[in-house]
Every structure is written in C-alpha cells, then in structure tokens.
Computed example of a mutant assay.
Amino acid sequence: MSKELTTVTIHGTELPIKEYQGERVVTLKEIDAVHRRPEGTARKRFHDNRKHFIKGTDYFMVKCSEVRPFFGQTPPNGFNPNADVTLITESGYLMLVKSFTDDLAWDVQRQLVNSYFRVRQTQPQAAELGKLVEQLAVVAASMAQAVSLFATAMQNLEAVTQLRRASKSQSIRGFVEDCQHPDMTNLLSNILSERETTTEAWRASYHPGPRKKVVSRPPAASGQLRIETFPAEVRQAVDEMMEQMMEEQALNFSEIARYCNRVGCMISSPSVRRYYDKYFNR
C-alpha cells in the first residue's frame, strides 16, 4: 500500500488518493461526500446488494489498524483497531452508483473514473514507455558503433585492394606515396626501405672477378632459348652470379633472369633453374 498522500478534487470535494494491493480505492463515506448524498447512503446500497459484489475484485474488507495509518488518519480515543473498513474499487464503485441517475451523479462518475481510478492504470504504461525509450537509445548507439566499424573495415579493405593492385603493377612506391592511411603508409614505407636496403647491400657485395674461360656448352636445340645460347660475356656474368650466390647460400634465379632480361637476353626463372641444375648442382 502506498504511503504517499496526494489529493484529487472531484466536483469541489478533495479526495485523498488511497491505494490497496496496487489498486486505487475509496471508502463508502467518501462516495457519499463526492455525490453529496446523506451519510450512510452508499453503505446501505452496498449492504442491500452485497451478494452481487465480489470480494477482492469489487471491494476489500480490511481492519482499521491496517489502513488508517496509510490514509493519514489519526485514530480517535477509543479507536477499535479490529473494526472493519470497506474499500471500494473502480468496478465496485460503478456497480454501487448505478442507481445514482441525477445530473450531478453522472458528472461525478465521469470525473472520479477518469481523474482518480484510471490515472493509476496509465502510470505503469508511462514507466514502460520510458524504459522502451532507453532501450531504443542503447540500440541506436550500438547501431551507430556498428556503422562506424563497418566504415573502418571498408576503408581497410580498399587499402588492401590498392596494395594488391600496386604489387601486380610493380608500383608499390607510388602507392605508398598516394596512400591516405597514415598507419599503413608508415608500415609499407618501412617494408620498402628494408627491401631496398637488402637489394642495395647485395648489389654492393657483388664484384665480378676476372674473366674466366667460358666453359664450352653443348648447343641449344633448335627453337629453344637457353643461357647456353647467350653471348659469352652474359654467360660469364651468369656463372659468376651463380657462384657468388652459392657461396652466400642465397640462390635467386629470378634475380639472374631479370639481369639477363635487362641486357637483352630474354630468359625465365625456370630456365635459369635448369641451367643451375645441369652445370652447378652436382
């Protein structure tokens, strides 16, 4: 039972708000007061038709000691705490005043139902609506975060796609210069710097020795392009590169193929590998 005391004015009569077991209730004396009927009228109507009222639905029968402190009433001298108090619910009130048909009765009924009994029913709905609004706010925030993460993922995917295209077109350095992602730019710059440093170090360590006598190789079959068919100076350089790579245990057939292609002798990496297997890998 609620202990908060507020009042509602019904046709000029102040009616304290009372709740029992979650429902708003009124006393028989208050019904007489708001309808301006002689005291005892509502009680007589109730007792005359009591068989039609359902206890716990249309009315509650409670002890004075249980309800009076909550209604803000001070028990008088000689107060009997065990006396019964009849509390009428909305359904019981509507049944009780069926015989009140004067104009005042109709007006009071409308005000009492709309301003007293049914206001209690809308309060839980307002609380549920507030909770729903809070839940929607949480969902909206989660959706905004998901959209942000999706946008970031799409940016990263675009960056990876550009990197793959740049790798295929051998223009990684240009991609890094045009990249709009600072973190990825720094990472790729470091990778390229290390790669270029390693390549330059290898080139700096390569010192062709004195020209050696070119080993006589069997002629290539008709229609086939092999290192054996290259000019003597090219074959000499290839042999020296092979020997140095073998010493450093860093064979790189692609590097040798690129050297041959730069000097105008077109060859593939597998062909260089076959040359190595045939003359060096023994």
Rank of each mutant, 00 (worst) to 15 (best):
M1H: 14
L5D: 01
L5R: 13
L15V: 14
L15S: 06
Y20A: 09
K29H: 07
R36W: 00
R37L: 13
E39S: 09
R43S: 12
K44T: 14
K44S: 12
R45G: 05
D58G: 11
M61N: 12
V62W: 03
E66C: 06
V67P: 04
N77R: 13
P81G: 10
D84R: 00
V85D: 05
T86C: 01
L94H: 07
L94A: 01
D107N: 12
R110G: 01
F117W: 08
Q121I: 12
Q121Y: 11
E128F: 08
L129Q: 14
G130Y: 14
L132T: 06
V133W: 01
V139D: 10
A140R: 15
T152C: 03
A153H: 04
L157R: 09
R165L: 11
A166S: 14
A166F: 05
S169V: 03
I172T: 06
V176K: 01
V176P: 03
Q180E: 03
Q180W: 00
L192F: 01
T197N: 14
T198A: 10
T199N: 08
A201D: 06
Y206M: 12
G209E: 15
G209N: 10
R211Y: 15
K213M: 06
V214M: 00
R226M: 09
R226E: 06
P231R: 05
E240R: 10
E243N: 05
Q244D: 11
E247W: 01
A250W: 08
A250Q: 08
N252F: 02
E255G: 07
C260E: 03
C260K: 03
V263S: 00
G264S: 02
I267D: 04
N281L: 08
N281Y: 14
